[in-house]
Design a protein around this nucleic acid. Structure first.
Ligand SMILES: [Mn+2]
Ligand SMILES: [Mn+2]
Ligand SMILES: [Zn+2]
Ligand SMILES: [Zn+2]
Lengths: 142, 142
DNA sequence: CAATAGTTTAGAATTATTATAATGTAGATT
DNA sequence: AATCTACATTATAATAATTCTAAACTATTG
């Protein structure tokens, strides 16, 4: 359980002012045992539940994108109808439960290393991500 | 180069009425050598360029989603800010060029078969997709 | 050819996201 | 501790993508 002062330092390190709102968002996002996945809506709800004060929707968007730019968050595209963010910023793969719309992290051991045989001239690989869509046995996909 | 009557049959087979608009969309989408990727906006432009008649935006959305449901098109999520569709409905992987925002199909031989070691209880795997993001060497990602 | 069910359409409505511009505030300077 | 200033937050407006609606249209059936 890191204290707030850690967040203040962390924010300072990457050149973000440790404002009250940013610290609050840090608490909600990082003051927990495990990393997790969320949508902007989830985050707004979490903040308004845990905090007495209101926070502007614009601030949530701005801050999330600031965090994303600084590498605190990763954006994940699974469902074109929703933006997911991930507090686990390391390279990793996902399962996506199409019944519950839940994202689940893969461990290193869950998927063998991906071997890419082709390379595109003049381009370098920035990331390799696998998405495994799963659903109940007795249900048609999507 | 299939003729329109093929599209009429094809549409009938899957229970879609072969209306003028659907045939037109079929022509734009499938009357070509290779499969390709497009956004709704791309499609609207292609239709209005190739055809003299106007087509309602709602109809494009409706028809694309009808085709998707019937398995004629696949929706692909790469960039949460844009919906891509693919006329290649077989299982395959993609490169995404972050400079040009272009989607590129992988051949079977480009990426070794993905081996998934974990399974989620009560769930079956619907699809496994790899996305390889590439960009110019001299450019930071995104 | 008339009836009918399914389809298209224009435009309104909704939703997600971004822009704007006035106000507030953290941190620095005195 | 008062002031300053750059940056951040806010409410709200604007934009963009997508979906809804309800009236008009049309492919198919009988
Ligand atoms: Mn984003
Ligand atoms: Mn869709
Ligand atoms: Zn994750
Ligand atoms: Zn493809």
């Amino acid at each position: 359980m890191p204290k707030n002062c850690n967040f203040i330092e962390k924010l300072r390190e990457v050149g973000l002012r440790p404002t009250k709102q940013r610290i609050k968002i840090c608490e909600v996002l990082y003051n927990r045992e495990k990393t997790f996945h969320f949508t902007i809506n989830d985050l707004v709800k979490m903040i308004s539940e845990k905090m007495n004060e209101k926070i502007s929707l614009a601030t949530v968007y701005n801050t999330v994108h600031a965090f994303e730019k600084k590498g605190y968050l990763k954006e994940i595209s699974i469902d074109s109808h929703k933006s997911y963010f991930d507090t686990n910023t390391s390279a990793h793969h996902h399962f996506f439960d199409e019944d519950t719309h839940e994202l689940i992290d893969c461990d290193e051991s869950d998927i063998d290393k991906i071997n890419i045989r082709k390379n595109i001239t003049g381009k370098k690989i920035n990331s390799v991500e696998v998405l495994v869509r799963v659903a109940s046995d007795n249900q048609t996909q999507k």
